[in-house]
């Protein structure tokens, strides 16, 4: 979504000056200018059509439905204690899982790009498994292993499955590939001379990693974080098996929506959906702004 909109915005920004010099009276044609890369009109139109069809119309329907409830009712439904607890569980754990993935995903990506070792290709392929596995399968497998009588659950000193910690484990599982796959290409392209320059200037290895390598990875790391976070917020299949789904404790917002739908309480379902939509949008917007800012600092502004 972000790529398409920024591309459209960039496309719209550039041509205006050139065209308005040619024909200052006809502002309507200022979008189009002769170009060596034709197809702006076609692709621009397609972007709008496609985004409307796939994303904007369904989302608008949710918002419209919620609006028809009236602001007072919407507010009451959204601030219901059980809803608030579910939202806190969903967003809080998603954020924590994405943060953990950012750290360990970076290490995985580092090992996979920097070193060669036996079984590297196998490991590299295994990173994608959480993408490919049906989420329900992942959920059942995870709950079997982390349940009190499971492989890991039986030796863990505390309960993992059927607690918020279980949700966290599931969200970490599904989010890992996003960080690894976004950071990997950037790491592979990272100029080794930067690290060599840092070393000749007297910087020890930890200093080089912290002050030279990490800052150049920040944009990619943020993208990976945002993707993992967004995926975790919407995750349903793998979580419900391991969560235990105890109201106020380990009940996620998507589950609450399903429950309200099953009770034919469409108003409450859309109210929760709208809140989730709003929070997700604001968080992704914030992450994108930070990312754009850090990218600009690195000198490849989009």
């Amino acid at each position: 979504m972000t790529d398409a909109t920024t591309a459209a915005a960039a496309g719209a920004r550039r041509p205006t000056t050139a065209a308005s010099q040619d024909r200052p009276s006809r502002m309507s044609s200022s979008f189009r200018t002769p170009s060596a890369i034709p197809g702006f009109g076609l692709t621009y139109g397609f972007v709008w059509f496609y985004l409307c069809l796939i994303i904007l119309i369904p989302l608008a329907a949710v918002v419209l439905w919620a609006g028809s409830l009236g602001p007072a009712r919407l507010f009451a439904l959204a601030t219901e204690p059980r809803t608030l607890a579910a939202l806190r569980v969903s967003f809080g754990l998603s954020f924590a899982a994405a943060a953990l993935n950012a750290v360990f995903g970076l290490i995985v990506a580092w090992a996979l790009t920097r070193y060669s070792f036996p079984g590297k290709r196998l490991l590299d392929a295994a990173v994608d498994l959480p993408f490919a596995l049906p989420t329900a399968v992942a959920g059942i497998a995870l709950s079997a292993i982390y349940a009190p009588n499971g492989l890991i659950g039986s030796i863990a000193p505390f309960k993992i499955a059927f607690t918020p910690l279980g949700i966290f484990v599931a969200l970490v599982f599904i989010g890992l590939p996003f960080v690894v796959r976004t950071v990997q290409p950037v790491l592979a392209d990272l100029d080794r001379e930067l690290e060599e320059a840092s070393a000749t200037l007297g910087a020890r290895r930890p200093t080089t990693l912290l002050r030279v390598v990490l800052p150049t990875l920040i944009p990619a790391l943020l993208t990976g974080f945002a993707l993992a976070f967004a995926r975790a917020v919407g995750e349903y299949g793998s979580v419900i098996f391991i969560a235990g789904n105890i109201p106020y404790v380990s009940e996620i917002a998507p589950l609450l929506i399903i429950m309200r739908l099953e009770e034919f309480d469409y108003g409450a379902a859309t109210a929760i959906a709208t809140i989730m939509l709003a929070i997700s949008f604001l968080m992704l917007l914030a992450i994108n702004l930070i990312e754009a800012w850090s990218r600009r600092r690195l000198g490849h502004a989009r």
């Binding site: 001379e193 930067l194 320059a197 002050r211 800052p215 150049t216 920040i218 850090s294 600092r297």
Partner: peptide, 8 residues
């Protein structure tokens, strides 16, 4: 040759 300046 390619400067290797710290871009950030």
């Amino acid at each position: 040759q390619h400067y290797a300046l710290f871009r950030h």
